Amino acid sequence: MADNEFGYTTWGMDWVRLAEPLRRTRPEPLLPRARSIARNNGVQATIEGRIVRGAIHRGGQASVTHVEVAPLPRAAVTAIAEVIADPTVLTDDMHRALAIAGISPAPALASVDCSCSARSAHCVHVYAVFYEIARRVDEDPRLALELQGYFQAAQDDPETTVEAPRWVPINTLEPADYFAIAPVPIP
């Protein structure tokens, strides 16, 4: 895998697999353009906790991509800590040890959004952000666990695992809590 442009480490390949899943039966025509955008530094990605925001400017168009990574469950954090005693330097052998132990360090996405006009779940901008993050994870594999909230969860109290939902389903709202119903006087 050393000759791969993106995902030459197993940690980075997990991010490439988000763009190129093994279960895909036909080629995705957007992937060469997405790799070109990432290769030519067309993605300005900022990482804040588990959220990656990518700004992509091509020609006269600009798109903002938002990728939120799902947090690791408490059981996975504990299991990873048992397998990897010192996560300061992560190697491919540590990734294989996690796989042998039955723990998948691959990221799961909580949400993906792009401001472009494409009407699909994944557009060229989202794929470009995946490749950019794969490149960054290849440079620093700790980022793979950091994006999943591993280091934050390892420091937190195990009793505080409840996370506030990002969205509230509309059918769970009670209108009476938000609107006062005043009696109408009858003449």
Rank of each mutant, 00 (worst) to 15 (best):
R39M: 09
Q61N: 11
P32E: 03
S63I: 05
R53S: 08
S36E: 15
R39V: 08
H66N: 13
R35E: 13
A75D: 14
T78S: 13
I47Q: 04
A99V: 10
A108M: 08
V64A: 11
H66R: 14
T78A: 15
C116M: 08
A106I: 01
A45T: 05
L72T: 04
R74S: 12
G49P: 02
S104I: 06
R96V: 07
D113Q: 14
G60D: 15
R50V: 02
G54W: 06
A38D: 05
N40H: 11
R39Y: 08
Q61H: 13
G54K: 05
Q44G: 04
A108E: 14
R53H: 12
A34I: 09
I56R: 04
I51E: 11
I80G: 02
G42E: 08
E48A: 14
L98D: 02
G60C: 12
A81R: 14
A76H: 11
P87S: 02
Q61E: 13
S111T: 15
V43D: 01
A62F: 12
M94Q: 14
H66F: 15
V77K: 01
R58Q: 15
I103L: 08
A76K: 11
P29R: 09
A110K: 13
L31S: 07
P71N: 04
G59W: 00
M94G: 05
R53P: 01
V69P: 04
R74E: 11
V67D: 07
A99F: 05
H57L: 10
P27E: 13
A99I: 12
R33Q: 14
V67W: 11
G59N: 07
V43P: 01
E82I: 01
A106N: 10
A85M: 05
L72V: 07
H95I: 02
S63Q: 11
I47N: 03
L98I: 10
A75F: 03
I56G: 07
L30D: 09
R53F: 07
T65V: 15
I100A: 14
A45C: 10
I47T: 06
D113Y: 13
R35S: 03
L72H: 04
I51S: 07
S117I: 10
P27F: 09
A108R: 14
I47D: 02
G49W: 03
I100T: 15
A62R: 15
Q44Y: 06
P27R: 13
I100Y: 08
T78I: 12
T78W: 07
L98Q: 05
P71E: 05
V67S: 08
P71W: 06
Q61G: 06
P105M: 11
E68Y: 01
S104C: 12
A99Q: 14
V89S: 09
A79V: 04
Q61F: 11
S36G: 14
S111E: 13
L109A: 07
P32L: 03
L109Q: 06
P32S: 04
V52D: 05
D93R: 13
P107I: 07
D92M: 06
I84P: 00
G59D: 06
D93P: 04
S115E: 07
E82R: 14
L98F: 01
A99E: 13
V83M: 00
S115M: 01
E82N: 12
A45P: 05
P107W: 08
C114K: 02
G54M: 06
V112W: 00
S117W: 09
A97T: 04
D92I: 05
A34C: 10
M94C: 02
V43M: 06
L31T: 09
S63A: 15
Q61T: 12
I37Y: 04
R26G: 09
